[in-house]
Design a protein around this nucleic acid. Sequence first.
RNA 1: GCGGGUGUGGUGGAAUUGGUAGACGCGCCAGACUCAAAAUCUGGUGUCCGCAAGGACGUGUCGGUUCAAGUCCGACCACCCGCACCA
Length: 849
Amino acid sequence: MSERYNIKETEAKWRKVWTDKKSFEVTEDPSKPKSYVLAMLPYPSGRIHVGHVRNYSLSDVVARYKKAKGFNVLNPMGWDALGLPAENAAMERKTHPKDWTYENIAQMKAQLLSMGLAIDWSREVATCDPSYYKHEQKMFIDFYKQGLAYRKESMVNWDPVEDTVLANEQVVDGKGWRSGAPVERRKLYQWFFKITEFADELIKGLEGLDRWPDKVRTMQHNWIGKSQGAEFSFDVVGNDEKIKVYTTRPDTLFGASFVGLAADHPLAQKLAGDKKGYDDFIKTCQSTGTSEEAIEKAEKIGFDTGHKVAHPFIKGKELPIYLANFILMDYGTGAIFGCPAHDQRDFEFATKYNLDIIPVVQSPDNDPLPYVGDGQLFNSEFLNGLNKEDGIKAAIKKLEELGIGKSVTNFRLRDWGVSRQRYWGCPVPFIHCDTCGLIPVPEDQLPVELPYDINYDKPGNPLDRHPTWKNVDCPECGKAAQRETDTCDTFFESSWYFLRYLDPENKQTGFANEKSNYWMPVDQYIGGVEHAVLHLLYSRFFMRALKKCGYEVPDEPFAGLFTQGMVTHQVFKDKDDKWISPAEIEQRDGKWVKSSDGSPVKAGAVTKMSKSKKNVVDPQDIIDTYGADAARLFILSDSPPDRDLEWTESGIEGAWRFVNKLHRTVIDSIADMPAVDTPKPASFSDKAMELRRAAHQTIVGVADDIDAFHMNKAVARIRELSNTLSGFKPQDDGEKWALREGYEALIRLFNPMMPHLAEELWSQLGHKTILAETSWPAHEEDLLEADTITIGVQVNGKMRASITLPAKASKEEAEKIALSEKNVQKALDGQTIKKVIVVPGRIVNVVAG
RNA sequence: GCGGGUGUGGUGGAAUUGGUAGACGCGCCAGACUCAAAAUCUGGUGUCCGCAAGGACGUGUCGGUUCAAGUCCGACCACCCGCACCA
């Protein structure tokens, strides 16, 4: 009987071996194909969560697998260390964002190390380090010089009590999360990156990303939201003002019954500022959140300015001008014409304010209004009889002839607002001088470092009220000037970090071009689907922007992308209807009760892990109890990686049992195996051949599954082969040899998932090499085909029997065997056979009647 | 509101992309070992009828195409996620 597997000691032993041998540290090697495997870098919150374990288990499988397949694999790790949570923690716990962050990094690094990841830690970066953000300050200035960074006024959520800008997530039910005061919308001067300059290129680039999930490409496509339409101006009746509108449906212009302006449209104040109720209306609009969701969901309200515009096509017709809360100043021109008969929102608005609803498009199926589909135009003078497409063209042509409009391409994509009025971010490297204006910080004065001595006693931005930090001499004229106190959105850091890994020693100039040329683009990027748009789009924008500034980078940063699903867990409530952690409960007689006092517990839905619902599992507890291999295995089993994974106690226990069982059966089987490197026998028994086929088919199957990210299927195959091997009792030398061959293959196949156990067993089997430096097992082509197969036989499409026949049997043979089967005869019951369909290797279907 | 996704046994999920639905795992049931328990091992396990052989039903719902549909087409239903200052 073998000794029990000592997981803790063994796992630590092998991690030390990998570290000592620097197994995962790499350099550029042009003689080998490279593979840059990258997991999204974590935010250092303090503890790793199960989502991290899933992410890094996946990237580790890919990294180890690719390495075994002969690739020069780079798999780095770093810390997305700037951001809001550090400041919240600092305020709550009277600590400093920097101290809090670095403590968290130390803790989380220890946790990640315990997972046994094949990471090149020599390249580790933390984005809060001035040696990191120095480079982005340089980039920021480069962007500015190329016209890719600029300042303009923009709307923010403003907390009037805290005197600060609020993130959308800090707005709860329209109120500041801390102060509880109703949130206002305010305009502020802010920095923007001109992502819209590349809108078209970013759409076109999506076509080439064939190793990205379709859904992410679709989401980005829709996010950029290219639309073709017309822009034209209405004359305001009674004064010289013009209102420029954007529309994708100029063909419905004869159905227009009003013109709508965004509440913050430049003309709004002028047209309606003196009217009764205007201030209240603006206030109501400002109390709505700034998120698109909040605006779209809010009840559609309007304000009649009392002014009118002239219809450009219909002489003498005038349309009322309304302010409306559903019109976005950021999209199009911030003004629309409303055609209630053919637009859902306009329809609701017109119904509410009793405006005309004039149908001009005939629905072929007489659909009810509003009808947004294609159809023949009517009530539309020169457009009558045309369809939508031709109508749009004709309407634009007319607008052009009248000299009031033109065809335009519009994007939903807005420029990226990067200003944050917070401390724990990369300082925007600019100086405001009363004489010289806005001046970039000279390169030799970079980085602009964050001051350490700050306080959170007062509301607002700590940089803004710091006694000395913002005082600086103007680099141009030398007079007293002030630093920009805005910091950057933390998406800035994550937009280029994968370049920073490529040249870790070079702290001065960022990334060297030769090195980035070797490693870029990232071959396999892995992370949460929640980044489908922002982070992944910003990174794509960055490559193009950097290129424009002369940096040598590819257009597309990530050649392959995989987005993993969330990790979920069941939620529970105690007898007082309060959320209760799964760690505090247990099952007794099939019912959930609180462990401490046996009181009843209600089981709820399976949802995303969240602290507030207390359904969070700490992976460190799991690793400490079951070991890293079991944790990794569980998370890779069962659920396909792109779908949500439900965390269950029984699941992790099952994985742990398998780890132990593998260890036990391999150790117990050593006695049945020949010594390591025993030459292959000349011949094998049928039983041995069957075993060898199973092993070789599994080698190919697991590789295919990993290539396709079907880790759950790869694990299932490994378990199948393990079951086959553990039930095999060898009788002769050939069978013994086949058993060793099978186990050695098995160990190499599960090495990417359970690397500690694999190394241990590999060494127990007598190998002096380590698996981290051992190749993927080779397969023999002629062992991939079975010699007999079993296929089904249908009669009139219903399964009636299954037959076993040689794999190479002809159609005729298959038909003959099928028809002679007694259940087939019975099902035929003397009917005439009309047709027999034979799909070789698949099925026989007898059609009779 | 807009956009995206998912739906198969008690349960997580397989199904070579139109060809034996339920691989593999979890759970459950029975048995072996044990004074007992744990661990481990063996067998069973979609539902209904049947002692069995076997039969009927079965992939969210309804309809269609096909020799053959979880897979293709049409219409619905339910749930989940994202929406630009969370990372």
